[in-house]
């Protein structure tokens, strides 16, 4: 029997079976198909909505300057150019920016996730007095806006001291304003950007791992710490990766914590992006050899360069994300969060 015949047979069966069920089968089949179509349309629309800003930016970044003032050009440029990219690359010091953004984000997110993993594990697997109270503190950490504490923290780090030790040695307190140390301390003690969320997610994950696994390790003579390293960490690899990716992305685009804790003269992508206007002014002034204050930059041009810069800034993230996406999505789906 060929495939075609089998299909025909199947179809015949379908009508017979449909009659047997008084039309219920047909009803369900039609409903199913209608839902599929609706779902496909809906998802297509939403995906388009998400991608639209990116597409708009891409089209803007590929236009030559004269296309911006041509009313007949909407999405597809008349004069294609990559000039905006090379201009943005020099203007934003792209290479330098990506490099320092990358190592800062990497360092901070490793610290943040490492400490959050320890703490999350501690909350999930041990019973100790005042546990509920401390977990309440984690929730507090999640909901306290950083703006609330930024002024005192800033002042604290400009005259930094631990129990008067440095004052005794140096005669004065330390000004850590131009070092990355404060940020490392904050990251290492779970107080960094959205760190409460990572603790929460990791705690939920560790709660879901069966107790028997841990008990077996104890019986075999593993201590608390060894169990954590040997048994729990490999299991949590996926969840840790996702937290790491979140942390990396958020750190990459962050300006608030960056401005507060990192040295002013550090070239970071997120910082450069917000300076677009003055940078563009400078570059144009250099090209035409006039004073920066006299340069007139049109809004359209400014937006075009901003769009180009944004695309260039998120490009490394998109690449990382495309590679990690598979493990990332699946790992999140395995989390099994329970309150």
């Amino acid at each position: 029997m060929s495939k075609k015949e089998a299909k025909l047979q199947n179809r015949k069966d379908f009508w017979e079976r449909n009659q047997q069920t008084n039309g219920y089968l047909l009803e369900r089949k039609v409903g199913d198909i209608v839902w599929r179509v609706v779902r496909a349309l809906l998802l297509f629309g939403l995906c388009f909505l998400i991608l639209l800003p990116l597409i708009n930016k891409l089209s803007a970044s590929l236009k030559a300057e004269e296309d911006l003032f041509d009313a007949t050009v909407v999405n597809l440029p008349k004069n294609w150019t990559l000039g905006n990219y090379s201009l943005a690359a020099t203007m934003y010091q792209y290479g330098k920016g990506v490099f320092s953004s990358a190592w800062i984000s990497l360092l901070i997110s490793v610290l943040q996730v490492a400490s959050a993993t320890l703490v999350g594990y501690g909350f999930a697997r041990f019973n100790f007095p005042l546990k509920k109270f401390w977990f309440g503190c984690v929730v507090l950490l999640i909901i306290v806006p950083p703006q609330l504490i930024m002024a005192p923290l800033h002042l604290y780090f400009t005259s930094f001291d631990i129990f008067g030790i440095f004052e005794a040695i140096n005669g004065h307190r330390l000004n850590l304003k131009n070092s990355i140390l404060p940020y490392l301390m904050i990251g290492g003690t779970c107080m960094g950007l959205k760190n409460g969320l990572y603790i929460y997610l990791l705690r939920q994950f560790f709660r879901g791992i069966p107790k028997e696994l841990e008990e077996a390790a104890y019986v075999d003579g593993c201590g608390n710490f060894k169990t954590f390293i040997r048994i729990m960490l490999p299991d949590a690899k996926a969840m840790i990766t996702s937290c790491f990716l979140f942390s990396f992305v958020w750190q990459w685009t962050d300006k608030f914590y960056t401005d507060l804790f990192l040295p002013r003269d550090m070239t970071l992508i997120s910082r450069e992006l917000t300076k677009t206007e003055s940078l563009l002014r400078q570059v144009t002034a250099q090209i035409y050899n006039i004073e920066p204050s006299k340069v007139q930059v049109s809004v359209a041009r400014l937006n075009q360069i901003t769009a180009t810069g944004t695309l260039m800034a998120i490009a490394p993230l998109l690449i990382i994300y495309l590679f990690a996406q598979k493990g990332f999505v699946e790992s999140l789906s395995q989390t099994g969060i329970k309150m």
């Binding site: 501690g122 909350f123 100790f128 504490i149 923290l153 107080m191 608390n224």
Partner: peptide
């Protein structure tokens, strides 16, 4: 021992919470 181990694990958080959250909160 369990309690001590638990506290050791969440120690980073406790330090951070007291120094970098509670204290600035109080000051602000």
């Amino acid at each position: 021992r369990n309690a001590i181990a638990g506290y050791l694990f969440i120690l980073p958080f406790i330090i951070g919470f007291l120094v970098f959250l509670l204290k600035p909160l109080f000051e602000s």
